[in-house]
Simulated assay, not measured.
Amino acid sequence: MYAERAAQLPHVVAWRTRVPPGAEVSRILPDGCLDLIWHDGTVFIAGPDTTAQLGTAPPGSRFFGLRFAVGTGPGVLGVPADEFTDRQVPLDAVLPAAEVRRLAGATDDPTAALEELARRRWREPDRVMVAVAAGARAGRPVGVIADRCGLSPRQLHRRCLSTFGYGPKTLARILRLQTAVALARRGRPFAEVGSTAGYADQAHLSREVKALAGVPLRALVG
């Protein structure tokens, strides 16, 4: 059973799940986010993914996490996002081992312990990079985003890597995928999904979904 709620910090979602008996492999789509996860007494960072990841764990496993919205996690951890791209990294590789042990031992309420850690280390997101993410989500060309944010294309790329874990074009592809999947899951026809999300045509939609998610869009809707 998966559940989530708004965390005590802005731009952060607290979530939890327990793996039921007979659970199928879960497909975790790239979303531009960074997660801090407690899993049965171990704590790790799940970085921003460029393609879907397949999640497997024994039945009964418990997961508690904080999902940091696009660009907000690196400030809390004090490490550039591209250090974690497509990786799961033990938290004690970033923070002091004693602090991580206390967090790992919070078996009664892992979410509260995760939120307290994030609260102590909270940094407000860079406003320029918030604007970059908004531009990418709106489908604006990279050159337009750079101009509006007062950055050269090279500066934009470098800052996107450290903030989001990948460059602006990849960020835009991933955010567009999230929009398309959300629309499809609300029952919108695929032709409408493609045009609304900003794909050139149905073939473009199909190629991009398969490349990023690993399966056709129809497999993500059921």
Rank of each mutant, 00 (worst) to 15 (best):
Y2W: 15
E4P: 00
R5C: 00
R5K: 11
A6P: 01
A6M: 03
A7L: 00
L9V: 03
H11C: 02
V12C: 12
V13F: 07
A14M: 01
R16W: 03
R16M: 01
R18Y: 00
V19T: 14
V19N: 09
V19L: 14
P20Y: 06
P21F: 10
G22Q: 05
A23C: 07
V25M: 06
I28Q: 07
I28S: 02
I28H: 08
I28N: 02
I28D: 03
L29E: 07
C33P: 00
L34N: 07
D35V: 00
L36N: 10
I37A: 05
W38E: 09
D40G: 03
V43K: 03
F44N: 00
A46M: 02
G47N: 06
P48C: 11
A52R: 12
Q53C: 05
Q53D: 08
Q53S: 09
T56R: 13
A57R: 12
P58F: 05
G60R: 10
G65C: 05
V70K: 03
G71D: 05
P74M: 10
L77W: 09
G78W: 05
V79A: 11
V79P: 01
D82G: 03
P90N: 05
L91S: 07
L91E: 12
L91A: 06
D92T: 11
A98P: 00
A98F: 07
E99G: 01
R101V: 11
A104H: 02
A104L: 01
A104C: 09
A106R: 09
T107Q: 06
T107Y: 09
D108M: 05
D109L: 00
D109G: 00
T111D: 00
T111M: 11
A118Y: 12
R121I: 14
P125C: 05
A131W: 01
V132K: 10
V132T: 04
A138W: 05
A138G: 10
A138L: 13
G139P: 04
P141M: 04
G143H: 03
V144C: 01
V144A: 15
A146S: 11
D147F: 13
C149F: 03
L151H: 01
L151S: 06
Q155M: 11
H157E: 14
R158T: 10
L161C: 07
S162T: 15
S162C: 07
P168L: 02
P168T: 07
K169N: 13
L175H: 14
Q178N: 13
A180N: 09
A180D: 06
A180W: 07
A182C: 06
L183V: 04
A184I: 04
G187C: 12
P189V: 15
P189G: 13
A191N: 09
V193S: 07
G194C: 09
T196F: 04
A197N: 04
A197Y: 04
Q202E: 09
A203G: 15
A203L: 03
S206I: 08
K210Y: 10
L212Q: 15
A213F: 08
V215K: 11
V215E: 04
V215T: 10
R218T: 12
A219V: 14
G222Y: 01
